[in-house]
């Protein structure tokens, strides 16, 4: 039992170490002069469109549900007029970045794990190498850059959709014009609410890309390894997102931004 646990801990630590080494390799290659622009733009497009519908729908529902559920509590304290501001702040600071990243981990992380995994086991990565292409730069560097840059974009879009859904939620019981709602939201919302969220979403995007690629690129053991790569990419990326979120709240606290 104890030995089993120790072995597990060791393997998790080794895995973490290898992931760090993989990230190190990314940074070595990330600014190389022969950047694969074409593949990068293709990845941005794929990862953006792959995730946008789901992110949009979830953001809409989150905004709406949060508004409807927060109303009774706020009414009890006679603070129903605070509703737009309160929901908007939680959306911008936490809900949108984390939901976007988790959906990204599920959609993008798993598809990267599976795609690179099957490319590995069917020797497509070797074939690239033979064709005068550095497969790490072609496949990994472009993908990690694309998630790092696209997740924040998706987060901003989900901010907008969730706030719009909040307005709809408020109007289920009240009658608040868009103009008034807008003023209520943006008078309470500050740039210091938005900035830490934006910064952490770059880290989330990086985590999704690097974990998805690490799992896919390291696939072994034939086709069964592909499913495993996809699955463990989602699990690891989601876990990492929450760990990063925890670290982000500590940092903003220390910087006095909370």
């Amino acid at each position: 039992m104890v030995r089993g646990t120790a072995a597990k801990v060791t393997s998790v630590l080794r895995d973490a170490g290898e992931l760090m080494a993989f990230a190190g390799r990314f940074f070595q290659q990330a600014f190389h002069k022969r950047f694969e622009w074409r593949e990068f733009f293709r990845q941005c497009y794929i990862n953006g469109t792959l995730t946008l519908p789901l992110v949009g729908i979830t953001a809409f529902i989150m905004g709406l549900v949060l508004t409807v559920q927060s109303r009774p509590t706020l009414e009890r304290f006679g603070a129903a007029s605070m509703l737009p501001a309160m929901v908007a702040i939680s959306v911008v600071r936490e809900i949108a970045p984390v939901i976007t990243a988790i959906i990204g981990a599920g959609k993008i992380g798993s598809s990267m794990g599976a795609e690179l995994g099957s490319m590995k086991v069917t020797e497509q990565i070797d074939a690239m190498e033979v064709s005068g292409t550095n497969p790490f730069r072609y496949l990994v560097v472009t993908r990690v850059w694309s998630t790092t840059l696209m997740i924040p974009v998706l987060m901003v879009i989900s901010d907008a959709i969730a706030i719009w859904a909040t307005w709809i939620g408020v109007n289920i019981k009240d009658d608040v014009s868009w103009g008034l709602f807008y003023r209520q939201v943006f008078e309470s919302l500050e740039f210091s609410d938005f900035l830490p969220a934006l910064i952490k979403s770059y880290f989330f995007g990086f985590a999704i890309g690097i974990v998805g690629c690490y799992r896919g690129y390291g696939t072994e053991k034939g086709t069964e390894g592909v499913g495993q790569a996809a699955h463990s990419a989602v699990v690891t990326a989601s876990l990492l997102i929450f760990i990063l979120d925890l670290m982000a709240v500590q940092v903003t606290d220390i910087l006095g931004l909370n």
């Binding site: 069917t122 033979v130 064709s131 005068g132």
Partner: peptide, 26 residues
Amino acid sequence: FLFQSSALYDSMTVEENLEFPLRRHW
């Protein structure tokens, strides 16, 4: 090099597969 599993790029058409080494090797 002919790979055991053919190793064609799944995300590309046959034509793009064939063009790939030409373009990459300049």
